[in-house]
Design a protein around this nucleic acid. Structure first.
Lengths: 352, 352
DNA sequence: ATTAGCACTCAAATGTTGCGAGTGCTAAAA
DNA sequence: TTTTAGCACTCGCAACATTTGAGTGCTAAT
């Protein structure tokens, strides 16, 4: 445990640096309210903090900058989360689409809200659940030779895709399709459905294979889309404004496009008491992110399905303000999602 | 009309500069195959071309660089479009999703293909047609209190959105909805549907207002989504790699996010013989694009609906190769779209 | 333990110089 | 009249030198 004065100095350095972006020197600290010691004393303490690895100097004659460990210590021990102001609350709430009940839509709007609110990039994953199963598949003929296939999973994920059939859609074909769906898809876990399964199914259809094939392939597409935990990124262009990315902006954006962040997000260890996770610099295991931090929060649908939403930006971000904001957003998301989920499940049970 | 030798020199400068990105000097040109005159002669010609405004020098002791007008003259008079190689053709074809019949999906995949193929950013608009009308609206119950609303327009645009109802969805409710839809929406132009119209409709429903309201509001959302010609941009991060954007990349990306390019794309005058349009530098009227060129091509669905797809990148782009590529892609898109459209329309007529 | 004082360091800003690619002009050659 | 060789000139650029000042670490006095 660091002695109190050292803590105070470290906290001041972090906060000052977050605010100004310039290395902070001993005189700057001395002039801060609440510091009644001389710059020399502060220098001594700073030398200690440097030796301990919490701060560093870009060059000999510059002020100090927090290291990754400095930020970490700050976030874990020193920072006191800011109270959200009323208008900030409202701003966050306003960004969420309560109405549609589609988790993906909810996530998308929430991501946009984060982008606007934080001026960083927002990242979110659609809920992933290995044990999710198909709850419903409907075929909606929209024109003579085109149908929309709609699928709902047990975790509430809705996916739809248009499909052109080779033959006109008649009632007979619809019935055949619905039978096929009832027998082979409804209630089965997503992981059961794959190309091989579809092909054998098609092969077993005989004369009806031709007309069913495009529809079944579309189902496979939908299942794939629903199983893969998609990563949604928005607000990337916000990052270009930060000077810490001056040189590497291209690399970073390229990296973020590569869907690999998915792994990071998913492979997060949830040993924190709250389910918010903060990864600073190289704590994200990719070297492209060594100057970036993520604040991500998990959300839940029912028992098994989880996803995450959060932000990514330079390590120099205002943790004490952002963390509560994201916590609050996640609370809202969880509330809406569980409302929808319970509603569905309850009524589903009733119906049975 | 420029004398032949001057044309040859201008063409060589443009092509050389496109290739290397460095200002090209008289000696470089002299050493090019087919140039049998001395550097001094070339210098004289270059002085003329400079006076005419086709080329310019970054500074006194540098080579020449094409101006916007130089590129324009090159594109209009000098350039000979490259033949597409077989494998390039195949690459372009591979990028297009023939199957689904959904124009938006087609456009999206085509855009991705362009991004991969050209290494620039791709831009496309969904088809806009003021006279489009609603062809079909279906409600698909996917769970007790949630439905998917699917809408098809006369131009083949498919839109869908989830909707939570306040009451359980029963057959009665579905019938009420379908009646409402048949009487008030099917066959009506998109422009007829607006918030006021929806509200008066809801008000007239009496006891059923409560259950119908969320569904009708969702329809309004869908109509809005279908009427607005959305701009889709992809591959922005490709642009970061080009040194001409070193400083201004942020501004450019911000600009592109602002959906304003829509206006540019739409407000294009189609007086060219082909329906491909090339806008060089400030020919795009926004100052953020003064160092960028666009190659955009229109596509058609049926008689009235048109949209556009193309690329955006630095003015220093390989016009002679890109133009035929985009032309070819558009041909494919048009073919697929008109296939789908005619199929639908024909069968639709039959059905009537 | 704290502080004043001071020599020291080093990035950044500013100034200086030389190089060389490329030019425009002129006068001779074709 | 057109082309070319030749040459002085320009100017961006890179390399190097100089200055400046913020900030440090250390030492000795408080």
């Amino acid at each position: 445990m660091l002695p109190p004065r050292r803590q105070k100095i470290l906290a001041a350095i972090v906060e000052q640096y977050i605010e100004t972006g310039e290395p902070v020197g001993s005189k700057t600290l001395m002039n801060l309210p609440g510091f009644d010691v001389s710059s020399a004393t502060i220098r001594n303490e700073m030398a200690e903090l440097t030796a301990l690895g919490f701060i560093t100097q870009p060059h000999t004659s510059a002020g100090r900058v927090p290291t990754q460990y400095g930020y970490r210590y700050y976030v874990d021990n020193l920072m006191q989360p800011a109270e959200l102001e009323e208008n900030e609350r409202r701003r966050i709430e306003a960004g969420v689409d309560y109405r549609s009940g589609d988790p993906e839509q909810l996530l998308a709007t929430a991501g946009e809200a984060l982008v606007d609110f934080t001026n960083f990039a927002a990242i979110s994953t659609t809920p992933a659940d290995e044990h999710a199963f198909i709850k419903n598949i409907e075929m909606v003929p929209v024109s003579p030779k085109m149908a929309m296939i709609v699928m709902l999973t047990s975790t509430g994920i809705l996916k739809s895709k248009a499909c052109r059939t080779d033959v006109p859609i008649v009632v007979d074909l619809q019935e055949t399709f619905q039978n096929l769906v009832n027998q082979n898809f409804i209630g089965r876990p997503l992981s059961d459905i794959n190309t091989v399964m579809i092909q054998t199914l098609v092969a077993s259809l005989g004369a009806k294979a031709l007309s069913m094939s495009p529809l079944l392939v579309t189902i496979a597409d939908l299942v794939e889309a629903a199983s893969i935990s998609e990563v949604n990124l928005s607000g990337q262009s916000n990052l270009l404004g930060y000077k810490e990315y001056n040189e590497t902006a291209g690399q970073l954006l390229d990296f973020l496009h590569r869907d690999e962040p998915l792994n990071m997000l998913v492979s997060s260890s949830s040993d924190t008491d709250s389910d918010i996770e903060i990864r600073i610099g190289s704590e994200n295991r990719y070297k492209e992110l060594e100057n970036s931090s993520m604040i991500i929060s998990k959300y839940k649908i029912g028992e098994n399905a989880t996803g995450a939403i959060g932000i990514i930006g330079p390590t120099r971000m205002n943790y004490s303000k952002l963390i509560p904001s994201i916590k609050y957003l996640t609370d809202i998301i969880n509330k809406v999602l569980s409302d929808v989920y319970e509603e569905e499940t309850d009524l589903g049970e009733e119906e049975n």
